[in-house]
Design a binder for these strands. Sequence first.
DNA 1: TTATTGTTTCAATATTTCCAGAAACAACGA
DNA 2: TCGTTGTTTCTGGAAATATTGAAACAATAA
Lengths: 117, 117
Amino acid sequence: MSDQTLMNAFAALAQPTRLAVFRLLIREGPQGLPAGEIARRLKVPQNTLSAHLAVLARGELVRSRREGRHVIYAADLEGVRRLILFLTRDCCHGKPERCEALVNALLPSCGGMSAER
Amino acid sequence: MSDQTLMNAFAALAQPTRLAVFRLLIREGPQGLPAGEIARRLKVPQNTLSAHLAVLARGELVRSRREGRHVIYAADLEGVRRLILFLTRDCCHGKPERCEALVNALLPSCGGMSAER
DNA sequence: TTATTGTTTCAATATTTCCAGAAACAACGA
DNA sequence: TCGTTGTTTCTGGAAATATTGAAACAATAA
């Protein structure tokens, strides 16, 4: 991922409406939601939301697909993963012990998966 | 962490100079670097850098302490952790299997710690 | 005290982002 | 074809951010 995409992603999440959209889409999962439905739920004008969705897409945090008249937006988990990876990789760069606290704090939040590995 | 702090953190990382400062400080570890030294290394005027450091501090990504004439800046790993936690928690909210790919991708980057847990 | 070094704050300009009305575009049904 | 619904693009003005010279502030030494 280029630094530009990385910064686009961070910039995308630095705005209340877009943060709300991101949270919503993460919760909706891979099937996503039509642009209009997102606008309705968040009570944002459709053209304003469209601009915000474009910003999120530039940061590779959401993807869109057309289904008939609808344009469906869904979170791009690959993009999220790269963001987390960036934060984590730089964090324990060369010093795993510095990362330990991070990982320990991270795993329990993932539905008890820590017990399995 | 408030949404405002969260957005401040994302906004802080959405600018090339600040991204560079963040990377530098993460690598320098807890002892950190004086503001002037950061400015010298990144070839940024000191007053410009000072403004950027203030933005990073507002996002709780760096902390400062005074040592004599120097003001030392160091990465705030707690802040980074909260960022990662936000991204991860929202991501696997209620559906751990959705998170699995994330965590698997995450652990190997941390110096082989995955083998130990 | 004065001088020196390190850093931040102030002030002003340039650039970017945010927002929403209006218009255009896209897909479908009648 | 035309009309309707869903979405994006265009446009312009308001608000926020970036940058840096100059001034102020802080700590120390002479």
